[in-house]
Design a binder for these strands. Sequence first.
DNA 1: CTGTTAGCGCCTTCAA
DNA 2: TTGAAGGCGCTAACAG
Lengths: 346, 346
Amino acid sequence: MAGPGTVMPTIREVARLAGVSVATVSKALNDSGKVSEALRERVETAARTLGYAPHASARSLRSGATRILGLLVADITNPFFLKLVEHIEQLASAAGYSVILCNSGEESEREERHLRMLLSQRVDGILLIPVRDRWRGRIGALARLPQPLVLVDRMLEGLEADSVTIDNRMAGYLAGEHLIRLGHRRVAIVMGSPEHPIARHRLDGFREALATGGIALDEQLIARNCFNEEAAYRSVLALLDRAERPTAILATNNHLTLGLLRAVTDRALAIPDALSVIAVDDLPFSAIMRPGLTVVMQPSAAIAEAAISGLLDRIGGRNPEDGARAVVLEPRLAVRGSTAAPPSRA
Amino acid sequence: MAGPGTVMPTIREVARLAGVSVATVSKALNDSGKVSEALRERVETAARTLGYAPHASARSLRSGATRILGLLVADITNPFFLKLVEHIEQLASAAGYSVILCNSGEESEREERHLRMLLSQRVDGILLIPVRDRWRGRIGALARLPQPLVLVDRMLEGLEADSVTIDNRMAGYLAGEHLIRLGHRRVAIVMGSPEHPIARHRLDGFREALATGGIALDEQLIARNCFNEEAAYRSVLALLDRAERPTAILATNNHLTLGLLRAVTDRALAIPDALSVIAVDDLPFSAIMRPGLTVVMQPSAAIAEAAISGLLDRIGGRNPEDGARAVVLEPRLAVRGSTAAPPSRA
DNA sequence: CTGTTAGCGCCTTCAA
DNA sequence: TTGAAGGCGCTAACAG
């Protein structure tokens, strides 16, 4: 029968059953100090018999470490972040850490609440994908965190903290370069706010790549301030309904890509014959899409790895006080079927 | 500068700064006992000044409760489970609980390790989506858990524990009934092992619905033991290459649906004109599929809600020892474009 | 090698 | 209404 009927035994009961002192039990179970083989076995048997599991709170209180990491995600519905969560949980677990997962849903109040909680829990370290807006007033609090912090995917201007990000300018550049090489000249971009560094950098890189090909990005073909699928959908419809339709469109993230695809489907345009589509961020299940989506992929496994190992280094006291470490990883172009040469002029 | 430079103040330093005793600080900050308004404000100011956050481990050690829930998921890459995670985190957080997320990746050893850890953490309650295989030897351990446990989505034969599941027979039935009404007579099913209750119940319901329409499910058209997308893909190819191709196929879960769709695309069959496709479990981003996928949806929000509220009830000591509570929720058919009447005979 | 002991930070009697 | 003191379970320092 499950339920609070049973109570967890303490180290003293294990000690009593094994006929030794509590200190010996502690040492035997933790491989610390010297304990004779005979006793260690008696202790382990006793512990197993009683179903003993050490009380993590008591241990933390004494030792000052919880072996818990806080993972604070801006928006868990974003498949890219989700992938990161998956990898991070896996890596943390392999390193002997548990993960408290928190989702901010892009609301800074939620992030703040969660952060306070993680502080109370005295997690040994925090991985933070910060919310997009209204973080300005809070970088002070972040800077004063007593435990190591690693920013993931998004940097925070004015906060000197470790970070793992990708080269977003490069992401935009790769997309632009690919389209240019295919011969596109009238291309569009669907993006969020230029206020957000990530979107801005992707735009910059995109524009730069076009310029390299002698093309100036038409300001009319930049759909800014699309913050969700719906906004992207409407903006793309507008782009497609122009007299001179673009021959290719870049969506700068996951959510926007969905809106983009929906709009293209609504207008019954064939991909890639009538229109090339390219996106930053892969979609889950893009495998079932025909044609496959050409994307600039973010190396989620590598990001997770860099974030965790950087954090554990700090926790372990390695990488001492020599300022913030900024790891920047390279995105990669995956060409699939959604991009092709532009339709020949009618 | 982030990092372990700063140390978190204790309740004693708050007390000193406020010029009161630690007991008063505790009472003031927790609304317990009587504290004069003047003191409470002095205390709160002091706490804020110092950036004090109570040490959760110390509190747990003393109080016996951690306000942490363990969420142990068989496979976080399954979009349906993911949806549950999302809802559960949200609801737990709203109720003042944190969530330690663990992913077993369908490996019972990982599940076991995680469970031991959650035990050590003395989480107040556990939500468990158990791995599919090799759980038999472990129901003893689960039954003896000192904290409340709620099984989610999957029951465990022989374990008397609270559970929240859906009516899987009904799920199969809804799919079968829909196809029958459309006039299909030669239908196929792609499923996992009949050993697994969920798959078996869905098959049973499906068969029953067909029988109601006077159709006997052809044993040749049951693709059993498909445990992943790849297996489903190959099985469906085989089904489609038969002399007498089925006019409709049901995939009994998320992963299998992907394999099914891939196979259909490979054979260049038009959905729903040449073949109707129906699935249990919605796909994320099914919104961008054209035609939309007709699915039997699991009410993930309701499942999460029932699971959390059931668990919190147990934690709160409500629902006392009156045996296991089994909540069974109803799936729902969402008709979209992937199903239609069968092609008329050539 | 093993045992004894102090104390981590907090909350909850109990006394003033 | 406020303060003093004990102890939750564990580990680390020290004694034997």
